[in-house]
Nucleic acid binder design. Structure first.
Lengths: 188, 188
DNA sequence: CCGATCATGTAAGTGGTTACATGATTAT
DNA sequence: ATAATCATGTAACCACTTACATGATCGG
């Protein structure tokens, strides 16, 4: 249950509300683990029942009460164990590869459109990823160690490296199809 | 609904049973769109209700009746439309990147173990992908055109190219951590 | 005046997994 | 003997998404 463990990770920095968790998700790990507001809110009480969290309710006038979630000892132990545990291989589902797989039934025009679309999606992702370091250095409150930041930036770098490789592949295949060069690529 | 459209794609080659669909999934698109037997069986009657398929029931002694699914005109049209339609960006969830993100709380030993594990998973995937062209040339029945085969092999090549890039990244990061070289990587 | 920010949730639906159930036939 | 192949499914569960609901405050 990765969502829950990501939440544990953030609450280990400092106690937070669901609202704040949603924000920090979007600012940091969204690019490899997006989370919806409703999902976060639904999972927090479950984590409390498991004894990983405790809630501190802070009443407010005019606004709903803040529910600040704190990590318990058991929560901290759970996090530590999960962080070190080997994860099963993450399987990636790529619908556009299904399209490519059946592209024999399409004209070159349409296939090219499909690949160009994919390339443009990746270019946008690269742009977003490129913006992260700048954004982050502003919004960081300094509570993170340089080592924390190093690993954060590694996750961004991984995204960038994969995206660049995928983009290069797409551009090469597009060029090849434009030249009507249908030899099978050399593999392995 | 990509599962359903992948099924349409295969049934456009020739009519098949759920059992045969499961086999062909495993032999071809499993590496980017795995499907469970139970899921395929559940979705077929739904596709029939939508008017995309018709069933031909072939009674057998000793075995359950074969239910051979045929594509209808509407099914064929649906497939054609979907194949040419821009897909929304496919979001990839990588639990091990959550681990890496919070790796500041772990020792170098443990982080290295995590990265090595990831590298070994990718090496295995590369091996499996490398085996596909050989397997496929045997099991193909020749009904596929060379163009069909070209696109099939492209999906494999994409998997290989991405995997190699990810593996290189991992190996470089592992080496850097071994040298205790914690400078931030240069991005963008 | 309008949109963003703060702050909480619930309900229904979707796409997929896990586990269960049956049973003859053929190949090793 | 034993495992693989053929051939069908169902039920319960899980992670996640979509859509809905409320409402004050603050900055442009």
């Amino acid at each position: 249950m990765s969502l829950e463990h990501a939440i544990l990770g953030f609450l280990n920095y400092e106690p937070m509300t669901g609202y704040e968790l949603k924000k920090i998700f979007d600012q940091s790990i969204k690019h490899f683990w997006p989370a919806k507001q409703s999902h976060i809110y639904r999972v927090l009480p479950q984590m409390e029942e498991k004894g990983w969290l405790t809630v501190e309710v802070i009443q407010q006038d005019t606004r709903p009460a803040r529910k600040v979630y704190h990590l318990t000892e058991r929560g901290r132990a759970e996090l530590q164990a999960w962080l070190a545990a080997d994860q099963p291989p993450s399987e990636t589902r790529l619908a556009w590869l299904i399209q490519l797989f059946f592209a024999g039934q399409l004209s070159d025009e349409v296939v090219l459109g499909l690949l160009e679309h994919q390339a443009s999606l990746i270019r946008h992702r690269l742009q977003r990823l490129g913006g992260i370091p700048a954004e982050s250095s502003q919004q960081m409150d300094g509570s993170e160690t340089p080592r924390d930041r190093f690993y954060w930036m590694l996750t961004v770098d991984y995204g960038v490296a994969s995206a660049i490789a995928q983009l290069r592949w797409l551009e090469e295949v597009i060029a090849r199809i434009r030249r009507s060069q249908y030899e099978l690529p050399t593999i392995g």
